[in-house]
């Protein structure tokens, strides 16, 4: 009986041990895929744009479309002032997108000790997504206070509300602001986690049916077709969640730029 535990794919293994001042800083398969995402994106962007052709070729078109896509997103939700955060949002978007897409590899023919043979989605770990979202909230609060000073607190006192209602509205606004980093990180993490568990559960059905004999094995075609459909859906989710993370970042940055709205 093959191991069909759907949670096993999220296990973190040590690739190279490293300990500094009592902290376990081992290079893990999670870290390996983060490095892989960064390196592959950097290579893609560097190679695609190093010719700087006036009429873009195929590679340069990909880079230009990505650039234009994120620039439009920042401009439409945070305004022209928001473009100063373009490098940050672009990096976040591309990093998460690359991470989600690398996780979609069902098979990774590396065979290095600790990484094994399967892909790994580092965005399916709450610690990774929480770090990213705390970074976003740190920039929102830091820049908001730096730019607006005490006026940043207007965020919690929306204009156009009858004064009596501030007793209720202000606590709600504060709670909603404080829950932002949680919802931002949990959304990405839980989506990736749930999607990959779903894929592995359906893949487990195929293995179980195949193991049950020839007659049942034929029925295994049904979950196999389902897995193919779900994989296509997962690619959509992988892109959509990176997009959602980036656009919410833009919207929160917009709050830092214009807290009175």
């Amino acid at each position: 009986m093959a191991d069909t535990n759907p949670i096993k794919q999220f296990e973190i293994h040590e690739v190279a041990a490293l300990e500094i001042a009592g902290f376990d800083l081992a290079f893990t398969n999670s870290a390996f895929f983060m490095v892989l995402a960064t390196v592959s994106v950097t290579l893609l962007m560097a190679l695609a744009t190093n010719k700087r052709a006036l009429v873009p070729g195929r590679g340069q078109s990909i880079a230009e479309i990505l650039y234009g896509f994120v620039a439009d997103m920042v401009r439409s939700s945070a305004g022209n002032e928001g473009l100063r955060f373009f490098p940050f949002v672009f990096t976040l978007f591309i990093f998460i997108l690359a991470g989600n897409m690398l996780g979609m590899f069902p098979y990774f023919p590396l065979g290095i000790e600790g990484i094994g043979w399967h892909g790994f989605t580092f965005t399916s770990h709450i610690i990774v997504t929480l770090t990213l979202s705390m970074m976003v909230m740190g920039i929102v609060v830091g820049f908001g206070v730096y730019k607006n000073g005490f006026k940043f607190l207007k965020l919690f006192v929306p204009a156009g509300v009858p004064p009596v209602l501030y007793i209720i509205v202000t606590p709600i606004e504060i709670i909603s602001f404080l829950s932002r980093p949680i919802s931002l990180s949990v959304r990405l993490f839980a989506n990736m986690l749930a999607g990959h568990i779903l894929l592995k559960v359906f893949a487990g059905f195929i293995v179980m049916l195949a193991g049950a004999g020839a007659a049942w094995g034929i029925i295994g075609v049904l979950p196999f077709a389902m897995v193919i459909g779900l994989t296509a859906l997962e690619f959509l989710v992988a892109f959509l969640q990176a997009y959602v993370f980036a656009i919410l970042t833009c919207i929160y940055l917009n709050d830092a730029l214009h807290p009175a709205h």
Partner: peptide, 9 residues
């Protein structure tokens, strides 16, 4: 963008 924002929330 608004659609995706509403969907996400």
């Amino acid at each position: 963008g608004t659609l995706i924002f509403g969907f996400a929330v």
